[in-house]
């Protein structure tokens, strides 16, 4: 297909969609004119059908699939799940996932909170916030490319004098202070932390934006009263700011944790999950699409599902509480 064909295909799809919806609504208004009151299913029907086909049915199939072997021919019970929790490769995957979920939310939230406080009420606040927030608008693939370039490594031999110049900033910094450059994405287990940095870089903006809104919502009288009491900046932070925004803090932490559980793009783009950096969402993709073990892949997807549910339930509750204040 050339460009014109693609655009025509898109416009046709939109027109077809509009025609179907138009027809449905026409039927509804005709029915209503005849005095038929029960037209709700015309409105909600398309969504319900799509959700059944797109989410409910596939999720059920995947749960069943996870109980079968790699080829999907024989029933093997929970063997795929025991493999996830016992095979050495899969244990590394679990370890990495735990690392992502514990480190990223805390660091991103702390950075976002501090920055929100530092720039609160300062001149140029909006611009300062946009700088930190912009990574949120960049795709994970784009962010991974940006950071891969920061970590870029050029061959280095400490015994010779004229090594090629480093083009990655981080390695150049090491060279400048007299240290040997590192293969940041290859050296285990530290490479996991260098991948996590990318997620922190993205999520700090999210944390900053949400927390900044919460800080600005703290009643002015409380802040004024504390100021008149002569509190220091750190006392203000500990006894006024943090208690007042605690529910929002929890929501931000859990939201980033959910994102980390599902992280796929960053790992896939930067290392492909090699060199001991795979996480559950990436391992699902590897097992399902390249390693040809759909049973194990399905089990990993279901595991992801199970891990996410309690955090989301907790998150939604906290969100309600934060909104109720």
């Amino acid at each position: 297909m050339n460009v014109a064909d693609k655009l025509v295909a898109m416009v046709l799809a939109l027109v077809a969609f509009a025609a179907v919806i138009g027809l449905v609504l026409l039927v509804v208004s005709l029915l209503e004119r005849r005095g038929v009151r029960r037209v709700a299913w015309f409105f909600v029907g398309p969504t319900v059908v799509l959700l059944l086909i797109g989410l409910v049915y596939p999720a059920g199939r995947t749960v069943v699939r996870s109980l079968y072997d790699a080829a999907g021919t024989s029933f093997i019970g929970l063997s795929n799940y025991t493999a996830v929790f016992s095979s050495p490769d899969q244990l590394v995957v679990l370890r990495n996932t735990v690392l992502w979920v514990l480190v990223t939310p805390v660091v991103a939230t702390v950075v976002g909170l501090l920055y929100a406080i530092w720039v609160n009420g300062a001149r140029g606040e909006a611009a300062a916030k946009a700088l930190i927030f912009l990574p949120m608008a960049i795709s994970f693939v784009g962010a991974s490319i940006i950071w891969k370039f920061v970590y870029e490594y050029r061959f280095y031999d400490p015994t010779v004098a004229n090594n090629p110049a480093q083009i990655g900033l981080l390695n150049q910094l090491l060279v400048w202070v007299g240290l040997p450059p590192q293969q940041f994405l290859l050296n285990q287990p530290w490479n996991n932390l260098f991948l996590i940095v990318v997620m922190i870089w993205i999520q700090a903006g999210f944390a900053m934006t949400i927390l900044s809104a919460a800080i600005k919502a703290i009643p002015g009288e409380i802040v004024e009263a504390a100021r008149l009491d002569g509190v220091t900046a750190s006392e203000m932070f500990r006894f006024v700011t943090v208690p007042a925004i605690r529910p929002t803090l929890v929501v931000v932490l859990t939201t980033i944790a959910i994102g980390c559980l599902k992280v796929f793009d960053i790992v896939r783009t930067m290392t492909g999950g090699l060199y001991g950096t795979s996480v559950v969402a990436n391992e699902f993709y590897t097992q399902s699409f390249t390693a040809g073990n759909q049973g194990l892949g399905a089990a990993l997807a279901v595991l992801l599902f199970i891990l996410v549910i309690p955090i989301i339930v907790y998150n939604v509750r906290q969100l309600r509480r934060a909104e109720a204040r």
Binding site: V63, A281, F305, I309
Partner: peptide
Amino acid sequence: VVPIQVTLIPL
């Protein structure tokens, strides 16, 4: 709450 991973292969 359904992660899209659980839907991909059947879809």
